[in-house]
Design a protein around this nucleic acid. Structure first.
Lengths: 249, 249
DNA sequence: GCCGATTTGTGCGTATGTATG
DNA sequence: TCATACATACGCACAAATCGG
């Protein structure tokens, strides 16, 4: 089922072909986006104050505030209290927040959304295996090895290592010519870490095995062996998937 | 005109451990989300009016409106003018809008974001090949065949077929046990169709070849042949990818 | 088809907290 | 410390849209 009449890309004019009227704050948001594009502003650049935007766009403060709020949600703009409004970094935080809420909303199967997210991470890691090993073949990556070492150390002491885990996976995908994949996987990882505590479930995993699988992935990539890399990826996801499967039934 | 101005003598919530203050509308949005979860509301259910939310949450209407605007952007709630506020259908429209804007923002390489999106669609279609053919093996799917027929007919007459194309791909992935994949691919498709006109590029593709590749994908899936399916997928994306590569040069 | 009740959309004035100089 | 600029927040009045009688 698809959302019938929605206009994801936005529109500069106030009406759409169907004849339906668009709320003013929607068009105001689009006009602010057009302003950013027209001025060629980049992430971090300063935007006009709300008052200036009101005058420039000919709308009220309430209107620009709601438009700015919408753009803030999408990380297209970023507001700092008492300082000003800036162009945002275009992160995928909106996707994260959306998926997190859906993950805790689904009533019947609490873990379905979480399983789907992890399944998608596994799928992408496997699908990118060739490209990753091609990018890492014959290279040395001290920063990634340091992350693995840190993860192993924390695993042996029984403490989790969420930050290193995320940095490792995004570090692997950062070498690709497709930056969207890395950002998506990072977003899915954020969904994972945000949903788990909200569900009140303790997903116990084999920390040491997970940590060592990271090292195996990195070595396989540097050795240029796609098959070994895929095997390490599968091993890496085994603990968390088994933990979820046990809880599901 | 002094009216009841609540004094924040005791802040109930709104401060984060770091000491930094959290904007009120952020906490208001979270409280609305908590209300939805607490009441067990499902997509389409009616929410209290803005006035009732103001009273219930103890904040002003402006604040409620900004919070609702944020939730509207994420498709967590849906507002209908003069009717009411409802729980949204949790689509990935926010992701679409975010990616579309980023796609047109990148200054140097206009088509990079578009190429990444299409590359990701291709990757997901290929990665899901086994599961798709497993789901379709030995089945008959008149509605998908009808879509293919429609696409071929439009292709021979020289007209594009965006709606049928999208419906076909999401229809294939709808059979999977992972609904997130289908929604993601649909979102990427929307990004594609929204970005192309904004960039002012006419991505000329071989319509007939694309249309026939859809039929080949469906038949391969029904025949239970993953390799044939993957080949059809690759053929399907060839025209658009070549068109993009030529433009990128 | 009109009317009125309900609900969201918009504009405006004002007060407050915060960062900068 | 004070002054200025700005974002944040509140409250009200009116406009526009929707639905039911």
């Amino acid at each position: 089922m698809r959302t019938a009449n929605r206009r994801p890309g936005g529109r500069s004019a106030g009406v759409k072909p169907g004849g339906r009227a668009a709320p003013r704050h929607e068009t105001t948001a689009d006009r602010i986006k057009d302003y950013i594009l027209g001025e060629g502003l980049q992430p971090g650049d300063l935007l006009p104050t709300e008052a200036e935007l009101c005058e420039h766009l000919g709308v009220s403060r309430s209107n620009v505030r709601e438009a700015v709020r919408q753009l803030t949600t999408l990380d297209i703009v970023e507001v700092r209290h008492g300082h000003g409004t800036f162009v945002g970094n275009m992160s995928l935080d909106a996707l994260v927040e959306s998926l997190v809420f859906r993950g805790v909303l689904v009533p019947g199967d609490d873990l379905r959304a979480l399983r789907e997210v992890i399944d998608l991470r596994l799928t992408l890691d496997l699908a990118m295996a060739e490209r990753i090993v091609d990018a890492f073949r014959g290279t040395t990556n001290p920063e990634l090895h340091a992350l693995v070492k840190e993860m192993v150390a924390k695993a042996t002491s029984g403490s989790p290592f969420p930050d290193e885990d995320r940095a490792f996976h995004t570090g692997l995908l950062a070498r690709l010519d497709n930056s969207l994949v890395g950002q998506l996987v990072g977003a899915f990882w954020d969904v994972h870490t945000a949903v788990v505590p909200k569900l009140g479930v303790s997903v116990a995993v084999d920390l040491e095995r997970t940590a060592r699988a990271h090292g195996e992935m990195l070595e396989a990539a540097e050795a240029g062996d796609p098959e070994r890399f895929r095997l390490a990826v599968t091993t890496h996801y085994e603990p968390i998937q088994r933990s979820l499967d046990e809880r599901a039934k």
